[in-house]
Write a protein that binds this DNA or RNA. Structure first.
Lengths: 148, 148
DNA sequence: ATATTTTAGTTGCAAATGCAACCAAAAAAA
DNA sequence: TTTTTTTGGTTGCATTTGCAACTAAAATAT
């Protein structure tokens, strides 16, 4: 057996993916910090969809953000602690909690948006658009491959 | 501001990357478990390079696996607990600890190899080779973009 | 109408991670 | 040669996860 034949692909892929992900969040957090704002990557990941969807349920958020229920609960907890969102029970289905941005939450969202934009540019660097497209495409396919 | 214009890319990218990574490790762990073997993704990530490099230092492993020092220390601890590797002080530079596979470690490596192979196939599915190449390429570029 | 199952969200706890402080050995400077 | 700095690795602690168990409400079955 040759010493690096089959070995390389899978190992590297996992390691590369983790490392890229880490670097991205790290950079985002740093950019946020440098702007004097205060929001974690996780919180931001949820804040966006809340803004987009107006008043999503935890479940909606979990599906969009691809995270499990406890994680969503806790992130919402932390956002609520900071008075960025409020939980509102659904009028008809009392199991469902809808999440709504407060004024401060909206403000923070608008403040962070350009930072996200900046981070996005830094992440992309010189990588051509069509490669990014393929990249995202492959990611989606991988996720699909593994959940069926 | 349109409700999904600039927003989508970055958010989704982070979420997709995390999700893909999670699915991959989950599948690997599951396949390993189904084969009656016992090794975590992290341990495997390190075991491979140890096998490849013969007797790498912690530092080597950290660089290859893109993980920090404490993490490597702990993974090696866990491998040592399972008697899969041993730490050997470098003869000349006594700061350096070299990691060497035991017989059991080698055996496990060979046992897990086909499982990794299988997982790799499942991850890739129908994705064409050249897209995978671009994918890995973009990952490397992103990491590079963010560490300079 | 009552009992059972499913769904939405929460909580608790054990394990993993990240950071900073730390130790020991080697290299560089004084 | 002695002191200072750097390097390789470890440890401790606070924070974050991931899982499984749990509660409450709605949907379904009896």
């Amino acid at each position: 057996m040759s010493k690096d034949a089959s070995l390389k692909f899978h190992m590297n892929l996992g390691m590369l993916i983790r490392s890229a992900h880490n670097s991205m969040t790290e950079r985002f957090v740093q950019n946020v910090f440098n702007s004097g704002l205060d929001i974690s990557m996780d919180q931001w990941m949820v804040l966006g969809p809340i803004w987009q969807l107006e008043s999503p349920s935890h479940k909606d958020l979990g599906e969009i953000c691809l995270r499990d229920k406890p994680t969503i609960t806790r992130i919402i907890d932390s956002l609520e602690d900071k008075s960025l969102v409020v939980r509102v029970s659904d009028q008809i289905d009392h199991r469902i909690k809808r999440v709504v941005l407060t004024k401060a939450g909206k403000q923070l969202f608008y403040d962070v948006l350009p930072i996200m934009e900046k981070t996005r540019e830094e992440v992309r660097g010189e990588i051509p658009e069509e490669q990014i497209e393929i990249f995202k495409n492959v990611l989606s396919k991988i996720i699909k491959n593994l959940n069926s």
